[in-house]
Design a protein around this nucleic acid. Structure first.
Lengths: 152, 152
DNA sequence: TATGAAAATATTCGTTC
DNA sequence: GAACGAATATTTTCATA
């Protein structure tokens, strides 16, 4: 899909605040409410805008412990990879999982209450996953930046 | 803030789809529309729900190259840390930055068009940041899971 | 906490450029 | 094809019970 300058501005605005009214958006873009409406629908239909979500404050729900887990598989056959990925998707504590290049195969972003819960997660969930070889965890000391906005 | 079961369900629903109407939410929660409305307002006022954002499909905007950069500072004085963090916040390509434990000091999630742009980002932006010592990058081969929802 | 009226907003439509 | 303003439908908001 081709995006003009107005589309890009619009997507940026919606990535920052999805609850703005079409009138608010129209004022920022110098367009009519209807034009904004039509552009948004087109962006949604094309799949470029995937969805709208609420973001919460982790600390306010006692889930302030963020850990990055580097994981090496014991073996790397297609079957092992598929099974591992299927299993990891089911774990609620794992917010993100990427297959990456380098010494380790996967990078996971894990969120739990505290160190005690993390220990429990490691022992009862992560290391019991089939084919997980070695793991190495980094604990988050502070969150410098955590954006969902991809600037266009 | 204390959350009852309905609050938690509501937050989970809004983390999945923020554009549901209060009527749709009321049906799923067995509440009146007004009750849903009041609960949402309370959750917003408390800061537990931080904001609502649109999420886009990276590939549809030619920003499909996701890289995790591990960074070690040359020195670790308060001053160096503050300057590095201030500068990194300004970089649009850096979606996330966490101060972490372990061999490296920071973990960055970087998004760019392709390898060529990443090379450029490294040379002209990342390694020119003051006090950056060594870096080590992992390229994303595939995205297994990438959630914004923190399950309550 | 629920109801329903009032206000705001989203959506559709007919028309123009 | 994209934009506009007017109309209609839907949703949010809020006073009142």
């Amino acid at each position: 899909m081709k995006l003009d300058t107005l589309d890009k501005k619009l997507v940026n605005l919606l990535q920052e605040d999805a609850k703005q009214t079409n009138k608010q958006l129209s004022l920022q873009l110098n367009l009519s409410v209807t034009a904004v409406y039509e552009r948004i629908k087109k962006l949604e239909r094309s799949g470029l805008i995937r969805k709208y979500v609420g973001l919460i404050d982790k600390k306010k729900v006692d889930l302030g412990f963020l850990v990055f887990c580097h994981i090496k598989l014991a073996q790397h056959s297609q079957e092992h990879i598929t099974i591992f990925e299927t299993e990891v998707k089911k774990l609620d504590e794992v917010l993100e999982c990427f297959h990456v290049s380098g010494e380790y195969d996967y990078l996971l972003k894990v969120i739990v209450e505290d160190m005690e819960h993390f220990r429990n997660f490691m022992i009862t969930k992560l290391t019991t996953l089939k084919y997980v070889g070695s793991t190495q965890s980094s604990f988050t000391i502070s969150e410098v930046k955590n954006n969902t906005k991809i600037p266009l």
